[in-house]
Amino acid sequence: MATPRDAVQPITSRSVVEQATDELRRSILAGVLAPGEQYSLRELAGMLDVSFIPIREALRSLEGEGLVITRPGRSAVITPLNLDDLHGIYRLRRTLEPEIAGRACGLLTEQELDRLDAQAAGFGLRERGMADIYDGHDAFHLALLAPAATAWDIRVLTLLWRAGERYIRIGFGRLDPDPAEHERRRKAHVDLVAAFRTRRAATAAAAVEQHLARNEKIAIGALSAASGA
């Protein structure tokens, strides 16, 4: 008699659906697939050189992340940038992240703080724009919060970070040509690590709150500029 172990096949490579989802997500977050633009399944399948089926499954996942809006007739619209959505993302982030930071600052080891301090310093290199540092940027913030974050905290924060990523990439990308912005970026993240190193919950929470407020302000400015407001 066959057992579940016999029936379940080991995974030897990433599925086409997973690969399609990751590449479409990357293209949306980077702005390659522009907000508000409509694409047919045929267009997307042609871009990725796959069949309709993995594209359809990928779009279902991305719709759940708020990145696309599927339309009847085999098409999808890249979710437009929206000021109310941006405020909502940051309202939820300010509810969660400072509180987690207040607990995490007492749990991080000195070795981990040293590692994060070195990573923060790297964010200020002039040759590194926002597109170059973004994946490491998310990992940096997750590492600061991880000791006190539950699995559900991480799931929710990951969703919020992905939802806000387009706004942040656009906002900070507009500032990349300014050499002073790179030093500010370095200092902002080094200061975060220093706040956590105090081991004082109120200090770490306030630093995260200030960091979020600054990011939201820059994202709002970018959104206003993009809309011509």
Rank of each mutant, 00 (worst) to 15 (best):
P147R: 02
P4L: 11
G122L: 13
T79W: 02
S227F: 09
A180W: 00
Y90C: 01
P98T: 06
L41G: 07
A76F: 00
L67Y: 05
P98V: 09
L144I: 03
L96C: 05
A226I: 07
D22Y: 00
T3W: 04
E18Y: 12
D178R: 10
T198Q: 09
L175Q: 09
F140L: 01
T198V: 08
V68L: 04
G124E: 09
R94Q: 10
A149G: 04
P54G: 09
Q19W: 03
P10V: 06
Q119S: 12
A222D: 01
S61L: 14
T3H: 04
N215K: 15
R42C: 00
R174T: 02
L223P: 06
S27R: 14
A76I: 03
F140E: 00
E63Q: 15
G171E: 01
P147K: 01
T158I: 00
A45I: 04
A195V: 08
L125A: 15
E23F: 04
Q210V: 11
S15M: 09
G171H: 05
R5I: 12
V50Y: 13
L59P: 08
A194S: 13
E65I: 01
T70D: 01
E23I: 08
T21A: 10
L41I: 14
A213P: 03
N82Q: 15
A226N: 06
L92M: 10
V17Q: 10
E37F: 05
D135R: 05
S227D: 13
L144Y: 06
G64T: 10
L144H: 11
T198P: 03
P80H: 06
G228F: 08
R93A: 05
A207M: 06
R71S: 07
V77S: 07
L96H: 03
A206N: 10
Q210C: 10
L29T: 07
